[in-house]
Design a protein around this nucleic acid. Sequence first.
DNA 1: CTCCGTGAGTTGGAAAAACAAACCCTCACT
DNA 2: AGTGAGGGTTTGTTTTTCCAACTCACGGAG
Lengths: 158, 158
Amino acid sequence: MAAAPKNPRPCSIADALALVGEKYSLLVLREVCLGNGRFDQLVRNIGAPRDILATRLRRLVDAGILTRQPYSERPQRFEYRPTRAGLELEPVLMTLMEWGDRHLRADDDRPMVIEHACGSELVPQVTCRACGDTVRHEDLTAHPQAPGWTVAGPTVAQ
Amino acid sequence: MAAAPKNPRPCSIADALALVGEKYSLLVLREVCLGNGRFDQLVRNIGAPRDILATRLRRLVDAGILTRQPYSERPQRFEYRPTRAGLELEPVLMTLMEWGDRHLRADDDRPMVIEHACGSELVPQVTCRACGDTVRHEDLTAHPQAPGWTVAGPTVAQ
DNA sequence: CTCCGTGAGTTGGAAAAACAAACCCTCACT
DNA sequence: AGTGAGGGTTTGTTTTTCCAACTCACGGAG
């Protein structure tokens, strides 16, 4: 009989992280969404080793999150850009940024401010598409669809 | 004297990922938000090696994202729970899940459905706190606050 | 009392990734 | 002919992961 088959919970969060959860991947996406998609810009702005970056870029292109487009023939030069799927990960970045700004920084130490088309500064929040309300933990109930996976009631610390 | 100073862009996304961006950390948070905060549950539901998990848990507790609370004296047993800061990362998980559901899965293969208090299924979306509109890449303009960091115009592939 | 099982981790050694620095290739410019 | 930029690859070393086995504290069964 098998030893320990390694049966993690089936989960789209895990699947998404399998693609973009490696070190630097989301920072690559950040830069690419900012329009800084050239290899040397990525190295400088992210601070990652060049070989690792090359590996990540290949993975993200294979996953359909980025494309590698020539911006000059003779000499051949390339630039990475987000695909539609890549752009749709931007909300994840915005949500992370908002959390980081709030929990990891002083109010006057925001390293980047995003302006929204509505005229004011963007403060991203996650809402429910149906009712439009801000998502609070207390309002959520999880229902695993596969058998064998349970959730216990939520118990918040403190 | 310093060799290569390694000067990445100052960024709350990077800072947040320094805390929760390591492999398994966000999956730990997922389980803990679901109420499955015991060590062996985490091992089974996530599929991570026990030693790595122990390391991640220490880090997350140190970062103030989880707490380690006894749920039984004699024998001493502990349970990890999200702090308020930890819970506030849940929107990141929801956003990732929504992306994963949409891009990585067939419609009828959703491994977890979240129900919202409003009565319908939760479909998370990131909105602007000021105007309430869904955040679209085209509506965003980034403004780095530190000197030396630029953003080029966004150029979407394809 | 002895044995078995459970929960919550540690420990030790092999395999995989990350890292840093140097290198390569193609072109353009001087 | 030499220099420099851009976009990577190579090489060798340091860290992390990974896995299995082990520990320790107890609680219950026989």
